[in-house]
């Protein structure tokens, strides 16, 4: 890579690879702004000859898309709040307190993080039916804790292990109780970790499909993932540009989070063992 020509060649190669990888996503956006008839050109046009937002308008006014989106937002926020509150307390306990069974507990968290959903889903389905809360967003919040809680707990635990013990000890010497030290010293230190854990938990809930498929069967409670798929299945002839518009809208929150999250990207997702 010493010569300038070599440098340029490498850059060209690298960016070709990047663009090929991102091509399906670029294609999704391009398709969503093409008029329906343009999709059936052979050969296909790359740049839209005519840019239109009619599919987005139709999506919002003529399909239950906004209802699904509302459900997904409620589901995402509710899951995130429940999980992050419980996990922050739990992680703090696992990191700063000593009691019998602590190590076992930490190991169990990691174990449950690896459990397949299909094993838990049948008993959970029976449980929801028995409790009479099947077909509600609430049932999905409960179901989502099965994967989101172990994940958040593990992630927060590794964040909190990075906070030096001395900080808490100093607060205790100054006469604070352990809870005061937790609120005044540990929480502000852990805030970046808590924020990125919240964002990742939200993404997990936003993208989940299997539980939503099994537990919810009405448009009233259906989130985006199963909702958009049902638009595909129920349509007589598949309107690809409408579906691509739905896909773009569904990915918007991720793009926003992505923009905020640049610095955390390499740290958070899929944690639970992979250490930098």
């Amino acid at each position: 890579m010493k010569t300038i020509a070599g440098r340029i060649a490498f850059n060209l190669f690298a960016w070709t690879v990047v663009l090929v990888t991102a091509f399906p996503l670029i294609w999704m956006i391009l398709t969503s702004v093409k008029p329906q008839f343009e999709l059936f050109r052979i050969p296909p046009t790359f740049w839209p000859e005519q840019i239109t937002f009619e599919h987005y308008v139709r999506l919002i006014y003529e399909t239950p898309f906004l209802k699904y989106m509302r459900n997904s937002l409620i589901l995402g926020f509710a899951t995130t709040i429940v999980v992050v509150v419980v996990a922050t307390l739990g992680a703090h306990s696992l990191v700063r307190f000593r009691y019998p069974g602590r190590e076992r507990l930490a190991q169990m968290v990691l174990f449950t993080y690896l459990l397949p959903s299909v094993v838990l889903i049948l008993p959970l389905y029976l449980m929801m039916v028995w409790l009479g809360i099947a077909n509600t967003i609430f049932s999905l919040v409960i179901a989502y804790t099965t994967f989101a809680l172990p994940y958040a707990l593990w992630l927060l635990r590794s964040f909190m292990q990075g906070i030096p013990d001395d900080l808490e000890a100093a607060a205790l010497v100054d006469g604070a109780t352990r809870m005061e030290a937790f609120v005044d010293v540990i929480l502000p230190q852990a805030l970046p970790g808590i924020i990125s854990t919240s964002l990742f938990t939200f993404i997990l809930a936003w993208n989940e499909y299997l539980y939503a498929l099994v537990l919810v069967n009405t448009d009233e409670a259906r989130p985006l993932t199963t909702g958009v798929m049902s638009m595909l299945v129920s349509a007589f002839n598949i309107e690809w540009s409408l579906l691509m518009a739905a896909s773009v809208m569904m990915s918007l929150p991720l793009i926003i989070i992505f923009a905020f999250l640049q610095t955390y990207l390499t740290r958070g997702f899929g944690a639970g063992g992979v250490k930098g």
């Binding site: 993208n207 993932t225 569904m250 992505f258």
Partner: peptide, 10 residues
């Protein structure tokens, strides 16, 4: 990071 549903549709 994109939802599997989105990936599959595309």
């Amino acid at each position: 990071f994109v939802s599997t549903v989105v990936a599959v549709l595309v």
